[in-house]
């Protein structure tokens, strides 16, 4: 797995190790105002602080191992997928209560579909409408989940 992709020279373990150390540091700072408890009993900050410390230790270890030559290089990645798929999820979250499933459903599906270059617009539109209808029948009618359907018109 020692593939060297062009443009990425950083070993993935170095990045991973640094990220772990970063997470531990953020956690430690966020916990500074909370009591670790007296020695006889365990306070609310005891466990998270202990774990953050261990994470930092693991981060250092992984970082050192990453410095050994021959480790796996960081692969290149594109941002199109994450932005559109996760954007679709965020759009669903933002619209489901004010606009309802009938709007949020197709919106999320179409946005997500844009993440794939193979997507065909008409096909996705029709499929999104059909799937939303299916989900309404399934979740709203059959399972009776209290999810808003089209509140600005139907009131629920």
């Amino acid at each position: 797995m020692a593939g060297t992709s062009p443009g990425t020279r950083l070993a993935s373990d170095i990045v991973g190790g640094l990220l772990l150390i970063g997470v531990a540091a953020v956690a430690h700072v966020a916990l500074r105002d909370i009591d670790s408890g007296p020695t006889s009993s365990v306070g609310p900050a005891f466990m998270p602080n202990l774990v953050a410390g261990l994470i930092a230790a693991m981060g250092v270890l992984i970082l050192i191992l990453g410095l050994i030559p021959g480790g796996r290089r960081l692969e290149p990645w594109t941002l199109r997928g994450p932005i559109l798929v996760l954007g679709a999820v965020v759009a669903f979250a933002a619209t489901v209560r004010p606009l309802g499933l009938a709007v949020a459903g197709p919106l999320a599906m179409i946005l997500a579909a844009l993440a794939d270059r193979e997507t065909r617009p008409m096909e996705v539109m029709i499929f999104a409408a059909v799937m939303t209808g299916f989900c309404i029948l399934l979740f709203k009618v059959a399972l009776r989940l209290p999810i808003p359907l089209l509140p600005f018109i139907l009131g629920y």
Binding site: M125, A129, L150, F152, I153, G155
Partner: peptide, 20 residues
């Protein structure tokens, strides 16, 4: 689906009025 939304929007004030 576009049609569905168009009708939905046209009907919205009417339905809202009925609700009111």
């Amino acid at each position: 689906m576009a049609l569905f939304f168009a009708t939905g929007r046209a009907l919205a004030p009417l339905v809202a009025m009925v609700c009111f």
